[in-house]
């Protein structure tokens, strides 16, 4: 019996290793092709390693950086993600705390409206939202965070409200008696307790905003501002032959920051995702 389970464990381990290779291979393949010269990238040879004369070094990466506007896109994506997530964390935690603590029909209704907005597909508001954004001039990377705050608040309020419900109200009442104002109570007492949820919300929202394609495409002026997903899509959307080398180099450069952030914060990310899901 013992022997058999040992064999089973070894088989399982080997199977996991095989799966790991399958999981990593697509990214590895893109990396290999990003190092080839343009003429050597064809559909039938994507699996072969570059030979000495086909090896391009970092030429494709340099091309993507200089002529394809990768750096600008990286900047816009970072700016939009940071401002949107910061606004969502701050505003939605405050809002969720208030509508959970102050019981009234309006607040209850608001809560369900937020929950409802989570399930509605983006296509429902796609056209009207982009027109509203145009009218209000919310169509630059500098203020698109207002749109993201509005459309992303559903999930954030829902998650924060779920956690606030589990905090005993007595702590906050004691602070009130000691003379704290509601703002002080929120920032000195509630925020520290909410920290784990804030991490979860940050991760989920950052993943969404960073990778979002359709919303910025419809809201931003594509000739002036391209986020990274828009840039990648633009490689194929534009007329003429697609520059495959710089495109693959851009894909790799898009993945690298994600992988770095992931390796640094993987414990929080995996925990945050599990916690966020259980709340749902």
């Amino acid at each position: 019996m013992k022997e058999r389970s040992k064999v089973f464990q070894i088989l399982l381990f080997v199977l996991m290793c095989v799966l790991t290779v399958l999981w990593v291979y697509p990214i590895f393949m893109i990396l290999v092709n990003a190092l080839k010269v343009e003429s050597a990238i064809t559909t039938s040879t994507v699996f072969s390693l570059p030979s000495a004369e086909k090896f391009a070094g970092f030429e494709n990466f340099a091309k993507a950086l200089h002529s394809q506007g990768f750096l600008a896109s990286l900047g816009y994506s970072t700016l939009i993600t940071v401002t949107s997530v910061a606004a969502i964390i701050l505003c939605c935690s405050m809002c969720a705390w208030y509508i959970t603590r102050v019981k009234s029909k309006i607040n209850n209704f608001l809560y369900y409206l937020f929950v409802f907005s989570m399930v509605v597909p983006f296509q429902m508001v796609m056209f009207t939202l982009s027109q509203t954004a145009d009218i209000l001039k919310l169509n630059t990377p500098y203020n698109i965070w207002i749109i993201y705050l509005g459309f992303g608040s559903g999930l954030a309020v829902f998650m924060f409200a779920g956690f606030v419900k589990s905090i005993p109200v007595e702590i906050e009442e004691a602070a009130l008696i000691d003379g704290c104002s509601p703002l002080q109570i929120f920032f000195k007492i509630v925020v520290p307790i909410l920290k784990p949820t804030m991490v979860s919300v940050t991760i989920l929202q950052a993943m969404w905003v960073w990778n979002d394609y359709l919303l910025p495409t419809l809201v931003l002026d594509i000739t002036k501002y391209k986020t990274i997903p828009m840039l990648i899509q633009h490689f194929r959307g534009s007329y003429g032959r697609v520059a495959m080398g710089p495109m693959m180099a851009s894909i790799i450069m898009t993945i690298i920051p994600i992988v770095i952030v992931y390796i640094l914060g993987q414990k929080h990310i995996i925990k945050g995702v599990a916690a966020g899901a259980v709340k749902g």
Partner: peptide, 27 residues
């Protein structure tokens, strides 16, 4: 608790609600 909080409704709820109105309710 609720009474003290209610005076601060605009600062706690308004930013999110305004953005939510622009980003979801109106569209």
């Amino acid at each position: 608790m609720e009474k003290a909080l209610k005076k601060y409704a605009w600062i706690f709820v308004l930013p999110t609600l305004a953005a939510f109105t622009i980003g979801f309710i109106i569209p």
